[in-house]
Design a protein around this nucleic acid. Structure first.
Lengths: 360, 360
DNA sequence: AAAAGTCATTGGAACGTTCCAACTTCGTCT
DNA sequence: AGACGAAGTTGGAACGTTCCAATGACTTTT
């Protein structure tokens, strides 16, 4: 029977020591019970559990983590939650982590490099077991090297950086815009614009390349001025449409860097009295949920953001389980979802084909 | 001079003890330096700092928290990140918390009560210093009482629960829909529908009441069938518009429970070949960023979600500073933003008034 | 010259866990 | 009867901090 220590001061939370005293066992026993160890007799265990309930015990994970030299916290840094793509990604991510008993330490950078650096350092101090990072635009590869040097597992999402053997979850950008462009070409469009930030990094580069390849295969020229340089925002989408409509050799359709650019484009078309799908065609990229209910509903290349997030989480958890394995990689195969924003080019609509049917 | 202990094993992180050894001081001194204590001589301090850098020291916040019996983690539980309103709220929240040196432990419930309970318990185990909670639909008041009993400061956002003296940050829902309805009435609309979940809790109730009050003041009847019962989603918005258009005494405008319902409504109007703003008017609620770039841009009652989030964070931080103060409360005064989705009712447009000017 | 203060530094006991090694008990095998 | 093993339990040393009380080396005051 353990020596009895004075009761813990009123007001402070009970600890395993208090439970031990109440259940008349040692604190080691309490700890074992809490961990569900099979080597504790059933009735001792239930006695302990009752005492714990009675005292309103709450497990102190911080203390346990300190002793175990481990944690179940995953740091996640997102740069633009305002984009539903990232919000949906985060939802999938968090859900998968939670299912596996991990907890999400979330930080938002707003594409700011200094903020990004700060939050990463903070997550390190918090002993995060792993990191999921969608690098802000312009993140130097050197930062990634430094994180690796921290010896904390990190998974990069969406935006590849460097060509190092880092764990990565993203989508096949080139294939995505290829499919989108092919779709437009098959609907009779010959002059197709591409709306995105020129020199916007590897993702932009790949998406533009898929566009160019599909144009080439359909023997369509790509005039320089069809590559319209806009920020990847809703405003950007508006500006892009304005620019496209002003061209002398005016395109009849546009591939957008992502869905929110496409939304901006839809908005501007409306403002100009044009209807997307008949007067001009728009295709987005990402497959965010809103696309099904925009005006008109958006044809887009879906990477299924929530699933991408879940896969990212799973990849990181795999890495935690097997620290030594070679670089992990998940490339979502994007899927073209045809809705009403893309239609047949002037005069090319086959007699049989009606406006693409609504999904509803 | 402290007794020299063996060097820490290769591979494990250096601790203040290692730094102490390297800088030839005691670990107490190192700790004081790290905290920026003024009572350490400047050159000792810099010697310590150099040693820390050299060894690649990283502060172990978990250990410190254990000893200090405090943490700088704030648990935040959101139920629908897929709604940009909450995403923007979270951004404002996280930013404000980060600015004050706090870190956000984020969890997503998807309106699921069991999940909500689980994540709250987990946050308690993680010794969160405070909680920010947007209660899932149907959260029993009893749960809130239990959290209070945990003696951990909690701030409720957006959805009031009970009439207890809980800290709360939200918006003036009644005033919001009042302004929206008044706006439509002034534009000549006599038959106005309200799209939302009937019996959807206090927020719905207040918004409906503001609607009813404004209708009354303009001596407009509200027929029961104009209170259209739909889920607060994009699909709901679509269904709501379909229902409204099918009524024998067909409304000419609708107030939507929130912006995403309004987006669904815009989408359905488009699908029916109608243009919001001229053929039918739509007003949303929340003021999410996308509203400025929908098709057409959305007239809405803005509560400025990001600012609301920031205020919520500030309120909780105030509570942490002054545990004893009376209940804190922030009610955002919503602001009507008139864009193109609301126009003059048939035949009532004054000669002078053009279509409301675009914001751009 | 002793007493009293300051200043800079230090030892060591916490904080609430985990987990190893040790210790009882008890039943079973020789 | 003694040796052995298994089952159940326990003491106590970690984990990396913080912070109180104490110490020693100087000044200043009396």
């Amino acid at each position: 029977m353990p020596a009895r220590s004075p009761p813990s001061p009123r007001g402070s939370r009970p600890t395993i020591t208090d439970i031990a005293r109440a259940a008349d066992v040692s604190k080691s026993t309490v700890s074992l019970v809490l961990q569900g160890s099979p080597s504790i007799k059933a009735d001792t265990a239930s006695r302990v559990r009752e005492a714990a309930d009675a005292l309103g015990y709450v497990y102190n994970r911080g203390a346990a983590d300190l002793r175990r030299q481990a944690s179940n916290t995953i740091g996640t840094v997102i740069n633009d939650l305002t984009n539903p793509f990232f919000a949906e990604l985060l939802v999938g991510l968090e859900r998968s982590l939670a299912e596996h008993g991990y907890v999400t330490l979330m930080a938002h950078t707003g594409e700011d490099l200094a903020t990004q650096q700060r939050v990463l350092a903070s997550m390190r101090e918090h002993q995060a077991a792993g990191l999921i990072l969608c690098p802000a635009f312009g993140t130097p590869e050197e930062l990634l090297q430094r994180i690796l040097w921290w010896r904390i597992p990190v998974l990069i999402v969406v935006r590849p950086v460097g060509d190092e053997g880092l764990d990565f979850a993203g989508s096949d950008n080139e294939a995505g815009t290829y499919a989108a462009t092919k779709h437009l070409a098959e609907r009779g469009h010959r002059r197709i614009a591409f709306l995105g930030r020129v020199g916007g990094g590897p993702v932009y580069e790949l998406r533009r390349r898929g566009f160019a390849r599909a144009m080439g295969e359909h023997v369509l020229a790509v005039e320089d001025e069809w590559l319209i340089d806009i920020p990847p925002t809703r405003e950007g989408g508006r500006a892009g449409v304005r620019a496209a409509l002003a061209l002398r050799n005016r395109p009849t359709a546009a591939i957008c860097y992502n869905d929110i650019v496409a939304f901006g484009a839809l908005s501007e078309l409306g403002e100009q009295g044009l209807r997307a799908g008949s007067d001009f065609s728009i295709v987005g990229f990402d497959g965010i949920a809103d696309g099904a209910h925009s005006n008109p509903p958006l044809t887009t290349v879906s990477v299924n953001p929530a699933r991408l997030g879940a896969s990212a989480a799973d990849l990181l958890l795999t890495r935690l389980r097997e620290p030594g394995s070679p670089p992990l990689r998940y490339l979502a195969q994007p899927q073209l979802i045809v809705r009403q924003s893309s239609g047949w080019a002037e005069g090319t609509k086959p007699a049989s084909a009606a406006t693409p049917p609504s999904e509803h």
